[in-house]
Design a protein around this nucleic acid. Structure first.
Length: 267
DNA sequence: CGCCAGGGGAGCT
DNA sequence: AGCTCCCCTGGC
């Protein structure tokens, strides 16, 4: 078990901020997170965090996954002192971090998220993992399921994904999986691209529009300048920034502020 | 180019 | 029963 003191890190807020749908609260301060083929339990007591894993796995995977080497206070400190709304939003969600999640998982996750709610998105993801992801076992004998590989989804019939509760999003997932498997869209290449180029490439995928592409850039590529605009964000910006959001003040970490606003508006 | 119906329900009040 | 859901595609 690894013990760490971390500032500006709150698993409750991260799990509620709607960026990760494979993080489950499992008791008062205990969270289970599945990422790729890894399984982790974390217990959090304010700034004290207890990660149930080996040192090497923590150093090589989870530390990066939770973005623990980044000081989010640096971002919050740069907020315009005259902007009371944004300051309050950041204060309210100061424990949020932008996780470094897998690109492929984020593509499918945010295809499913469109015109959908958190409860159902979580259920959809669980369904496809349990049916089409590889079954794994922890050292203590707990069964869990990895995220299905592109090949596993590309060969499905629409009805099989309909049964996972995806609705009309089934055809997007199958078509996108086919594009990845065939190599017409190259994920390894996208990981090396600038934000603009990566986004343009993602927009080639059937079912990926402006908003979903930005979510993928932010959560799957850690492109912090991506600023996904959904109906809630649009409304919030119209109310609090009638003359436009001051993107120029926050170059390079716009997406972090987007998360603070999104989480703030959620409450 | 702008507009908007339709997709297929399920979750929440 | 009605409204919403971190929308995108395709047709006009």
């Amino acid at each position: 078990m690894i013990e760490r003191i971390v500032n500006n890190f709150n698993l409750n807020q991260i799990s509620e901020s709607g960026q990760c749908f494979r993080m489950k609260k499992n008791g008062e301060n205990i969270f289970v997170i599945i990422a790729g083929d890894q399984y982790l339990e974390v217990r959090q007591e304010d700034e004290r965090c207890f990660f149930e894993c080996e040192e090497a796995v923590f150093e090589n995977f989870w530390k990066g996954y939770f973005d623990l080497d980044t000081d989010y206070g640096e971002y919050i400190g740069q907020i315009d002192s005259k902007d009371a709304y944004l300051k309050n939003a950041a204060k309210h969600g100061a424990g949020i971090r932008i996780l470094r999640q897998d690109l492929w998982e984020m593509i499918i996750t945010f295809l499913i998220s469109q015109q959908n709610n958190i409860t159902r998105i979580t259920r959809c993801i669980r369904n496809i993992c349990e049916r089409y992801g590889e079954e794994k076992m922890t050292k203590s004998g707990k069964i869990y399921y990895a995220f299905p590989k592109p090949e596993a989804l590309a060969n499905l019939e629409r009805a099989q994904l309909d049964a996972c509760n995806l609705g009309y999003r089934s055809k997007y997932v199958i078509s996108t999986a086919k594009s990845i498997v065939s190599g017409s869209v190259d994920l390894k290449a996208i990981e090396q691209m600038s934000y603009e180029n990566a986004k343009a490439e993602l927009l080639k995928l059937y079912g990926v529009g402006e908003k979903v592409a930005d979510c993928i850039c932010l959560f799957g590529l850690h492109q912090l300048q991506a600023f996904p605009v959904d109906t809630h964000i649009r409304q919030a910006l119209e109310v609090h920034y009638p003359d436009g959001f001051p993107f120029g003040l926050y170059r390079g970490f716009e997406g972090v502020l987007q998360q603070y606003i999104f989480y703030y508006e959620l409450q």
